[in-house]
Design a binder for these strands. Structure first.
Length: 424
RNA sequence: GUGGGUAUAGUUCAAUGGUAGAGCACCGGAUUGUGGUUCCGGGCGUUGUGGGUUCGAGUCCCAUUACCCACCCCA
């Protein structure tokens, strides 16, 4: 028995419907905020992620789906969206060809070779937004606010955690202080953290396992060592967020796992039902575009985990659509149903036809199970008189129409639909 | 990569080491062209896979795989 590949899921039926509606709503929200859709390939040269995401990150070191193609090119399936978008931004000269700031969003699948658990899969989906060419803290705030708008739409409770991780000026100075601090306490650090002192000292801050936890209060934190410009940026970010009615928690231990962030870093946490409680995360990355060989361009953005979001959208958030169906009771009536199906296809109602003759009892049973709102019965009598029996499955009312009166029928259905959806 | 749990019918779950069952779902029926409720009928499934212990294994032991959860990390 062949099964789906580990960590990859099928989606069908009601869940697929809800997922589709969720994506529609998300698109509507970000498009209203003037983000335009940006689609990049699922795969890229692996070098892009190594440079963009960072050679030392877990994502690059052990979580990448990569392979050699038939020409021996080293390809990777995208583990995140920012690197690809930055590559495309540079490749198409968007900084000179499009008005600035350039605001975009993407929705799609991403791949990481991790051990699956709740809220974490090997193929997962993200909404991402990125803004190029605007270095203001106000734009950071608007970007975070946009994430909040999405969550608000789905009536989700969440907390916004923000931090500043400085810039090329102040971070190196701070890193030295951090290394100095931790070097004297090596005996209290876990194995991983001892290594991290050299490779990525910032990561020590959000290590949950090593017993430095108790002494976090004394650990020097970045926000106390920001340079003037960064400090000003952070203050204005907080102020702007408050204007947007976003009440942030200042969390000096947020360290993004990807290397490219500068200044603003943020995470949105919520009760996703599992231990993976970060539903969105991101921040500013003013150096990434130039690091990858593009023009010096400030940028900011975030990614949101759609599986984690989906798990929090209430089951009844979306009503299933109203469906109409046609059944035949005998062979002679089949062509009438075909004609009817053709006519119905011209109208904005969801209609399906079952061309297999069956007893009326069976037809109604099937309709009931499929939660059909109105059924159209084509039997011997109807075939003889060129009529159709329409039955309202909710009220039990039924009425016979001439088959030419389709317009009349459709008008009744539209009225019924309007009433149905207005109750939502 | 490291732990813990689980694995039996389409599905959810039962079965003191002694012939594998139930609910739901599904299909059929309860005389004439009317659904939801009710009643009746319909089940041999290599008990995830491979070994072992035993007169006998769904049950005990070992291995393996998959799924779920957690660590790590991230969205």
């Amino acid at each position: 028995m062949i099964k789906a590949v580990k960590g990859m899921n099928d989606l069908y039926g009601k869940d697929a419907y809800r997922w589709g509606r969720m994506e529609e709503d998300i698109k509507m929200i970000v498009q209203t905020a003037n983000y335009t859709e940006f689609r990049t390939p699922i795969v890229e040269e692996i070098a892009l992620f190594k440079r963009g995401v960072g050679e030392t990150t877990d994502v690059v070191q052990k979580e990448m789906y990569d392979f050699l193609d038939k020409k021996g090119r080293h390809i990777a399936m995208r583990p995140e969206g920012t690197a690809s978008v930055v590559r495309a931004f540079i490749e198409h000269g968007i900084s000179v060809n499009e008005p600035s700031p350039f605001k975009l969003f993407y929705i799609g699948p991403f791949f990481r070779y991790e051990k699956p658990q709740k809220g974490r899969y090997r193929q997962f989906h993200q909404l991402g937004i990125e803004i190029f060419g605007d270095d203001t803290p106000q734009m950071d705030a608007e970007m975070i606010f946009t994430a909040c708008r999405v969550l608000d739409h789905f009536k989700i409770d969440y907390e916004v955690h923000i931090n500043s991780i400085g810039c090329n000026e102040c971070r190196p100075v701070y890193k030295e202080k951090l290394i100095e601090y931790f070097s004297s306490k090596k005996d209290k650090l876990c194995e991983d953290c001892c290594k991290r002192i050299k490779t990525n000292p910032l990561r020590l801050l959000d290590c949950k396992s090593c017993n430095m936890k108790m002494e976090y209060q004394k650990v020097p934190v970045m926000i106390d060592h920001l340079c003037g410009v960064c400090s000003d940026h952070f203050e204005k970010l907080k102020k702007s967020l408050r204007i947007f009615h976003v009440d942030p928690v200042i969390d000096p231990y947020i360290v993004r796992g990807l290397d490219y962030y500068t200044r603003t870093a943020f995470e949105i946490v919520a009760d996703t039902g599992g231990s993976q409680n970060a539903v969105a995360g991101g921040g500013r990355y003013d150096n990434l575009v130039s690091d990858i060989g593009g023009p010096d361009t400030p940028a900011t953005g975030f990614a949101m985990g759609l599986e984690r979001l989906f798990d929090m959208v209430p089951e009844d958030f979306y009503q299933t659509p109203m469906v109409f169906a046609g059944y035949v009771l005998c062979e002679e009536a089949v062509d009438d149903l075909v004609h009817f199906a053709k006519h119905m296809s011209h109208h904005p109602v969801t209609f399906f036809a079952d061309y297999r003759p069956k007893k009326i009892k069976k037809a109604l049973q099937k309709a009931d199970k499929a939660q059909i709102s109105f059924v159209f019965i084509f039997g011997e009598n109807e075939a003889k008189n060129k009529t159709v029996l329409m039955k309202n499955m909710t009220t039990g009312e039924q009425k016979t129409y001439g088959q030419h009166e389709v317009m009349l029928i459709v008008r009744e259905l539209m009225d019924a639909s309007a009433e149905f959806y207005s109750k939502k």
